[in-house]
Amino acid sequence: MKLETIVHDIPPLYDAESRVLLLGSLPSPKSREAHFFYGHPRNRFWPVLAAVLGEETPETIEEKQAMCRRHHIALWDTVAKCDIAGASDTSIRNAEPNDIGRLLRESKIERIFATGGKSGELYRKLIEPKTHVPITVLPSTSPANAAWTFERLVEAYRVIL
């Protein structure tokens, strides 16, 4: 397992009206390539979110951004920098957190959700002691989480409403 040091360079998606924050762990190689969140074509995040919000699945980055803004949803990741093997969250070492406190100060975010177990674990360890805002962990929409059907994911993500 060869670890590579990754520095997160995708800016958070939020504005002053954002009320809900969805946090991944770290962008996958495909997401970093696309320079936007949940960029792997087989990741079910965008279809799940669209279903929860009653919208068509957005295709372009602009459509994804617009859908999130319409529904006051912010997106970012827990990790600013870490050592990782490929896209394997379980391999994350030496994680440094993103400045979630800044998003909280610059928005109306009241609730934070992790889009997978590792994001939730790292948030609780590295960020929650500073922000004192608890996180709710949702199941990963990654294709690696095949145990969760699309329908089960949509049902689980309804809690963001």
Rank of each mutant, 00 (worst) to 15 (best):
L26G: 02
A95F: 03
L103Y: 03
T141I: 04
V133A: 03
D77I: 01
E62K: 08
L22S: 09
D89H: 06
L126D: 01
R32N: 12
V7G: 00
Q65M: 15
T131L: 09
I61M: 08
L126A: 03
A50Q: 11
L26R: 00
V52L: 08
T57G: 11
V154W: 04
P29H: 06
I112N: 11
P143V: 04
A87Y: 05
T60C: 11
E106R: 13
I84T: 00
S107R: 05
R102N: 05
L153Q: 08
F45V: 09
K2F: 08
V52M: 10
V20L: 04
R102S: 11
I73E: 04
M1G: 14
T136Y: 04
R69E: 11
A16S: 15
N94C: 02
L122P: 03
A95H: 04
W76P: 02
T78K: 00
A50G: 07
I6M: 04
H40T: 03
L3V: 09
T57R: 14
T136L: 10
S140R: 00
A95I: 05
L22I: 15
K108G: 10
I73L: 10
D9P: 00
I100D: 04
F37R: 00
P41Y: 05
V137E: 15
Y38F: 15
K118R: 14
E155C: 05
P29M: 09
W148T: 07
A16D: 10
L122A: 07
V137F: 01
V20Y: 00
I92G: 06
H71Q: 06
G101L: 11
L75F: 12
G86Q: 09
T115L: 13
H35M: 13
A146N: 11
R158A: 03
D99F: 07
S142G: 07
S142N: 14
E63V: 06
E155R: 14
G117N: 15
A144N: 13
V20K: 08
K30H: 11
H35A: 12
R105T: 13
V154F: 04
T60V: 10
H8I: 04
L104P: 08
V52W: 07
I160Y: 06
G116F: 00
L49M: 13
V52E: 05
C82H: 01
E121Y: 05
E59W: 01
M1T: 11
L26I: 15
V159A: 10
E56G: 06
E121L: 10
H72G: 02
K125A: 01
K30I: 09
S140M: 02
E63S: 12
G120R: 00
A87R: 07
A34P: 05
I127Y: 07
P129K: 06
N43Q: 04
R158F: 03
G116I: 09
E106L: 14
G86K: 01
I160V: 14
W46V: 08
P47N: 09
G117L: 13
L3T: 07
I160P: 12
R124D: 11
T60K: 01
I112W: 01
Y123L: 07
R111I: 06
N43R: 01
L53K: 09
P129M: 09
G39C: 12
D83H: 08
C82D: 03
H132A: 11
C82Y: 00
K64I: 10
P97K: 07
G24V: 02
K118M: 15
A114R: 10
L122V: 05
K81Y: 00
E62W: 04
V133I: 15
P47S: 10
P58L: 12
M67V: 10
M67I: 07
